[in-house]
Design a protein around this nucleic acid. Structure first.
Lengths: 251, 251
DNA sequence: GCTATGCGTTCCACTCAGCGAGACGACGGT
DNA sequence: ACCGTCGTCTCGCTGAGTGGAACGCATAGC
């Protein structure tokens, strides 16, 4: 019997329940049948039945035309997460100014090793379709915000991320440790991170970290646009200013 | 032994776990110690210890200066909830126009009987401090959005909400069934709901429902401002237009 | 200095909640 | 008539979950 588990987090009721909830990440299909849900989450059908029932009465799941979907309660709880609530509210006006001034897509993101999670996003009509989404993830090493965050992160987390596999997102994604490490050093010295079609074709991006008193990044702001339409260096000053003001307000 | 329970939703591992997460609703204190958490959620300390440990490795909870807080994963999952994701994205540009045109605070909310849950909120510098928050709840009968939603809801849910206790939020909150019922009839005929200091002192509000093909409300839009500064009737036309356009896009 | 309080953590025996193979009835398509 | 898939329910087994009690360690009060 190799049930010696110390796998905290996959088995156990909670693990199964979160598997059920996470099954909605493979998205777009808003409503999922119970059987399909059980299949995706990898739990037995009767188990899924029982758990889903409980999740429904807790409000984390709800019935909707012929299937189950994530419930409002999940959204409510999500809005309470401190790392996004305060930051987002404080940053919103600054992001709007930056958005107006640049006319390009603006992002606010935090590091969640080895990924970044987007807290806010302001798009324009003419903006390219970047693959980011509020609440969505992207590999940190493939995005400007990610590089800004990594460059100003603690030694340990940087090491940890660098030690993992650097997934290739586009043909230009930096996947070699040495190259990335050198670039991060440059970013730390310069205070601005760049990205040229490393997360999406035709998109360039510049990002600045929002730092606390000790100089550690707690978030990052970015501006992205079409590679042939946006003059990166023209937006950097405004970007720097935005990040500095946010840093001051959170020192 | 009165463990005759069939109380699905309060006991059971999941119930306890959600109690832990919900303990963060009594908010502002971003970080909570384990003991405090156990106390609030009403679970034994060792149990809280174990569950919190699992929740941490699942990403739903995280350690932060001397305490626990809700984890990023919760935010990520919350952004996947279909009832908010689609609506919010689609509504955003319209809300921005309405916000610019009126200069007042704009809300987007859905019905979650017997409350309303706010999906989006656009505020101005000079706006009154309304007690709403994205992802927050308010009793439906005390708000303009709530009345718009209730008036255009199915008979059953309206009955259900009316059957419950109508909590008094301010001195002017409508707490009498008959009065509310009559008002809802008027709202259904008129298509606009009003509110005069029924949810917050000094604040007036007007709301219109976003309806599906069958005429049932799926959301509501509102404009609110200072009672002595905002001319309610001046913003109603733009409000109506916004709600109509949204309704058309979701018919 | 010696309590007293509150924290996070660990232990452990009890038992009951959770588990899933399997069976079942209801649709719906071909 | 068939077959596939849906949601639901039963039921015996067992091990995952439970919480009282005790521990080690801080800090605060006297």
């Amino acid at each position: 019997m190799r049930s010696t588990q110390r796998d905290d987090g996959r088995n156990s009721v909670l693990g199964r329940a979160v598997s059920l909830l996470s099954a909605f990440e493979s998205d777009d299909d808003r409503c999922v049948t119970l059987s399909e849900l059980a299949r995706r989450a990898g739990v037995a059908k009767p188990t899924a039945h029982r758990l889903a029932g409980q999740l429904v009465s807790l409000g984390l799941l709800e019935h909707g035309d012929g299937g189950l979907r994530l419930g409002m309660r999940v959204f409510e709880l999500g809005q309470l997460v401190p790392r996004q609530r305060g930051l987002r509210d404080a940053a919103r006006p600054y992001l709007e100014d930056l958005h107006r001034a640049s006319g390009e897509t603006v992002h606010l993101a935090v590091l969640e090793p080895p990924d970044v999670v987007y807290l806010d996003k302001l798009t324009s009509r003419a903006a390219p379709a970047v693959p980011s989404r509020i609440g969505g993830r992207m590999p940190a090493h493939a995005t400007a915000v990610g590089k800004a965050l990594l460059a100003h992160a603690s030694e340990e987390v940087r090491e940890a991320v660098l030690a993992g596999t650097l997934e290739r997102v586009t043909g230009r994604t930096v996947v070699m440790r040495g190259v990335l490490l050198r670039e991060l050093r440059r970013v730390r010295a310069d205070g601005v991170a760049h990205e040229y079609e490393e997360s999406a074709k035709g998109v360039v991006c510049a990002a600045c970290p929002v730092v606390d008193g000790a100089g550690t990044a707690i978030a990052a702001v970015s501006v992205s646009g079409w590679v042939n339409r946006m003059q990166v260096e023209r937006v950097v000053p405004a970007l720097r200013t935005t990040a500095l003001m946010l840093s001051r307000q959170w020192g």
